[in-house]
Design a protein around this nucleic acid. Sequence first.
DNA 1: CAGTATCCACATTGATACTG
DNA 2: CAGTATCAATGTGGATACTG
Lengths: 101, 101
Amino acid sequence: MEKENICPLNYTMNLIGTKWKPLILFHLLEGELRSGVLQSKILAISNKMFTQTVRELEKDGLILRKVYPVVPPKVEYKLSTKGKSLEPILRSLDDWGLNNM
Amino acid sequence: MEKENICPLNYTMNLIGTKWKPLILFHLLEGELRSGVLQSKILAISNKMFTQTVRELEKDGLILRKVYPVVPPKVEYKLSTKGKSLEPILRSLDDWGLNNM
DNA sequence: CAGTATCCACATTGATACTG
DNA sequence: CAGTATCAATGTGGATACTG
């Protein structure tokens, strides 16, 4: 998607307006989650898309990635402050869907 | 985009989560607009994408299309009741962008 | 003016197999 | 367990020309 961001609305949509991003953010509203647990909550997401999506969310400063230097690997994700500030929007999107689907 | 709609959040995103839809809906918040006027407000949208997008919004019941049987043609678009109910979400997305971009 | 029809470039997504 | 690599399929967006 081209990044023109003429208006604020598009800026926001470019950060969360994809198939999986809102869903991942939504699940993280309940708190920090281990990578595998988070992924298992998003039924039907492929391994590749999961990694790719959390990477972008991290790059955009919406989530934080914590790596534990253990074997086997352990990684946890949680919302950043910026990510948490999306909560009202995520809840609105979910509520609206509930009332209209 | 695949239509799985496992959760309400995805239902909503499938309706408004594309490049141009939120922008078109946002401009229609100010009221009914003639086709050409609406399109001119969305800088850089191609003719094809404009028609395609308003068609989908109409199909999904978010906007209403009024055709005047005159020459030259005159078409006006406005939000439906369902479309109007998206206003809080659209404003939130815009506000969040303003505060974070 | 409003919209349609092609044709094409490229971005997004996914299945599968593999690594430290 | 968490993540990477590769290849293929599909979706999305756009330039151009044309119609009633």
